[in-house]
Simulated scan of single mutants.
Amino acid sequence: MNPERPSASPASEYRRIVVCADDFGMNATVDAGVLGLAGLGRLSATSLLVDGPSAAHNLPALLATHLQVGLHLNLTESFGQRGFCQPLKSLIQSAYLRRLPLDQVRTEISRQLDGFQNLTGRLPDYVDGHQHVHQLPGVRDLLLQALKDRAATPWIRDTGRPRLAGLPWRLRVKARVIAGLGAAGLRRRVQAAGLIQNPGFLGVYDFTGGVSAYETWMSRWLAQARDGDVLMCHPAQGTDARDALSDQRQAEYAVLSSARMAQRLADHHLTIAGTDPCKEPS
């Protein structure tokens, strides 16, 4: 699936969006949410945390779906794994002050790519970052070099072209802050490497407000979505008391799985991209 590639039929009225669920492997409720939405045809892809506690157990079910599977590069959240891990604020500071321990980061990226291949038997279809760390200075260069060394040609998530029409200022600011943490620099390097990225980015919000708020933001995202855009989401099915976002993840699942979601997609002449973006929308 190439997020930037146009439809095979210019006459088609439908635009295809890539709906991507982050955090597969984080816990059983997240995995259940991803698998449930995959079964409903509401997802295109999911991003795998190779060290996530539930990743290995639920991977066979994931690989039986139609979803693309990407590496969710994680440098900030500890699951008890060995290797480089820092709190997000410290990582950002280190990246911009050019104080990253580059050898450790290089080793960690390689370890996670190896882990992805060991778990799935293949290279990732795409790469993004947990808390968007893949775009940080230093990290992005090491990541692209590691992909080159493996002759891997995934698409790379671009956070730098958010669709912001109709969103309140606080969500616009958050999207711009995320983009400002390295998206432009990553884009230049991705283009030089001959890889591709999504043309637009949707799904940034403040993880509050329950179903009502998420329905509102979903309506505004879909109203401005363009062909090939990535809509990031974080669904879960069920409660996990250890997950601070558990309630909002369940709200996301409720919205994404609803009949109203199907109607919204139809109203905006959108379809969710599957594994082959050259196929006509069904």
Rank of each mutant, 00 (worst) to 15 (best):
D22W: 08
D23T: 13
D23K: 14
F24H: 09
F24A: 03
M26W: 15
A28N: 04
T29H: 02
D31R: 01
A32D: 11
A32S: 14
A32W: 09
V34W: 14
L37A: 05
L37T: 04
A38F: 01
G39W: 08
L40F: 09
R42N: 15
L43E: 10
S47A: 05
D51G: 08
G52S: 00
S54H: 08
A56Q: 01
N58F: 01
N58I: 00
N58S: 09
P60H: 11
P60S: 10
L63C: 12
H66R: 06
L67V: 11
L67Q: 14
Q68R: 09
Q68M: 10
V69R: 00
L71K: 11
L71A: 03
H72W: 05
L73R: 11
E77N: 13
F79K: 05
F79D: 09
G80N: 09
R82H: 07
C85P: 15
C85F: 15
L88T: 15
L88P: 06
L88D: 07
L91I: 07
L91H: 14
I92Y: 12
Q93H: 05
Q93G: 06
L97W: 13
R98H: 12
R99F: 01
R99C: 07
R99I: 05
P101W: 12
D103N: 10
V105G: 12
R106Y: 15
T107S: 03
T107K: 08
R111E: 02
Q112K: 04
Q112I: 00
L113K: 14
D114C: 03
D114Q: 05
F116T: 09
L119D: 05
L119C: 07
R122Y: 03
P124A: 12
D125K: 13
D125G: 13
D125P: 15
V127Y: 03
V127G: 02
D128L: 06
G129E: 10
G129M: 09
G129D: 05
Q131N: 15
Q131I: 10
Q131L: 09
H132A: 00
H134N: 14
Q135N: 00
P137R: 14
P137L: 13
V139F: 09
L142R: 14
L143I: 08
L144A: 10
L144F: 11
L144V: 11
Q145E: 13
L147M: 07
K148F: 12
K148D: 08
D149Q: 15
R150A: 15
R150G: 15
T153V: 00
P154E: 12
P154D: 11
I156Y: 01
D158V: 07
T159N: 04
P162W: 13
R163M: 05
R163H: 04
L164E: 04
